[in-house]
């Protein structure tokens, strides 16, 4: 699966897509592949304030637990309720219907510092 060009990436394999002051966050195809079948997503509460690199949520596969970190600071305005019953969305469609949360961005500069798709692709080839 290709990494979409309309968003930014982190070294922890999260993606962030900015639309106005709202950022949608998920994990990349590489991340879901490493996790294997996702069985549970512990979603945060709407309204929670979160710092950049703060703990956003926990994603579980059968045999592992991964913390997902927030690429930017902000307030959680929406969570992907569909994941409660269909955590597999993260595996099947990580960049679209498998999104995890939407944040109201507090500091726009933070996202500017994240990796571009090209930089992330290069990063992936380095770690593999």
């Amino acid at each position: 699966m290709e990494n979409p060009t309309d968003r930014k990436y982190t070294k922890e394999h999260e993606w962030i897509k900015i639309d106005g002051n709202i950022a949608t966050v998920g994990i990349t195809d590489f991340a879901q592949d490493q996790l294997t079948d996702v069985v549970f997503v512990e979603l945060p509460e709407v309204g929670k304030q979160i710092e950049q690199n703060g703990n956003l949520c926990v994603v579980e596969s059968v045999k592992s637990v991964s913390d997902i970190f927030s690429p930017v600071s902000g307030e959680i305005v929406e969570v992907n309720k569909a994941l409660e019953n269909s955590p597999a969305l993260i595996n099947n469609d990580p960049f679209e219907s498998g999104w995890i949360v939407k944040l109201k961005v507090r500091n726009e500069i933070e996202s500017a510092q994240l990796m571009t798709p090209e930089e992330y692709n290069k990063f992936l080839t380095e770690i593999e």
């Binding site: 069985v39 549970f40 059968v62 955590p87 597999a88």
Partner: peptide
């Protein structure tokens, strides 16, 4: 029994 679906058991 055959190989069990542990993903289903957890989901």
């Amino acid at each position: 029994i055959g190989r069990l679906d542990i993903v289903r058991a957890a989901r």
